[in-house]
Amino acid sequence: MAVEEDCAVLLKKLIGIVDEIAEISDFKCVVRRQCRDLSRRRLKLLTPLFEEFLEIREKITEETVKALVLLEETLESAKEFSPGL
């Protein structure tokens, strides 16, 4: 049961990170428009996926959890493109 709870915490954190990135309006890179479009349109598509995982979390494999942890680390590092975060 602890693994399921840890997975739920991870998924909720991922949803929060995606929402946080989607709120970024000022990117410091030269491809500002592309970053903004990516974060607002494409990245937000991950939220329904994470919500689906929340519903079926008892069936998530160890490999999937490892991949989600790597995705969390990647999304956290993506916030570095914004001067405000």
Results as ranks from 00 to 15, higher is better:
Val30Pro: 07
Cys35Val: 07
Thr47Trp: 06
Ala78Phe: 15
Glu55Val: 09
Lys79Ser: 09
Glu51Lys: 12
Phe27Tyr: 11
Lys28Cys: 11
Ile15Val: 09
Phe53Glu: 05
Val3Ala: 12
Glu72Ser: 08
Lys79His: 04
Lys66Pro: 00
Ile56Gly: 02
Val9Met: 07
Phe50Asn: 03
Asp37Tyr: 11
Asp37Ala: 14
Glu23Val: 08
Asp6Leu: 07
Ile21Pro: 00
Cys7Gly: 04
Ser25Trp: 08
Leu11Met: 01
Cys29Lys: 05
Glu23Met: 14
Ala8Tyr: 04
Phe27Glu: 02
Lys12Ser: 12
Ser25Asn: 15
Leu10Tyr: 00
Ile60Lys: 02
Phe50Ile: 02
Leu11Arg: 01
Leu71Thr: 04
Arg40Thr: 05
Leu49Gly: 06
Glu72Pro: 00
Ile60Pro: 01
Ile21Ala: 09
Ile60Cys: 05
Val69Ala: 06
Phe81Tyr: 06
Met1Gln: 13
Leu49Trp: 03
Val30Ser: 14
Glu20Tyr: 10
Thr74Asp: 14
Gln34Pro: 00
Glu76Pro: 02
Val18Asn: 01
Val69Asn: 07
Leu10Trp: 00
Arg36Val: 04
Glu62Ile: 09
Lys44Ser: 12
Gly16Ile: 05
Leu54Ser: 06
Ile17Leu: 12
Leu71Ala: 02
Glu52Gly: 06
Asp6Trp: 02
Cys35His: 13
Lys28Arg: 12
Gly84Glu: 14
Lys79Asn: 03
Glu55His: 08
Val31Pro: 02
Arg33Met: 10
Gly84Asp: 15
Glu5His: 09
Glu72Val: 02
Lys13Met: 10
Ile56Glu: 13
Ile60Leu: 15
Cys35Met: 15
Ala22Gly: 08
Lys59Glu: 15
Glu76Ile: 11
Glu52Cys: 09
Arg41Trp: 10
Leu10Cys: 03
Arg33His: 12
Lys12Gln: 13
Pro83His: 04
Ser82Val: 03
Leu45Phe: 05
Ala8Pro: 01
Leu70Lys: 12
Leu71Arg: 02
Pro48Gly: 04
Arg36Lys: 13
Thr64Cys: 11
Thr47Gly: 05
Leu46Pro: 01
Thr47Met: 05
Glu73Val: 05
Leu38Val: 03
Thr64Leu: 10
Lys44Leu: 07
Gly16Gln: 10
Leu46Gly: 07
Arg32Leu: 07
Glu63Gln: 09
Val31Trp: 09
Ile24Cys: 11
Asp6His: 08
Thr74Ile: 06
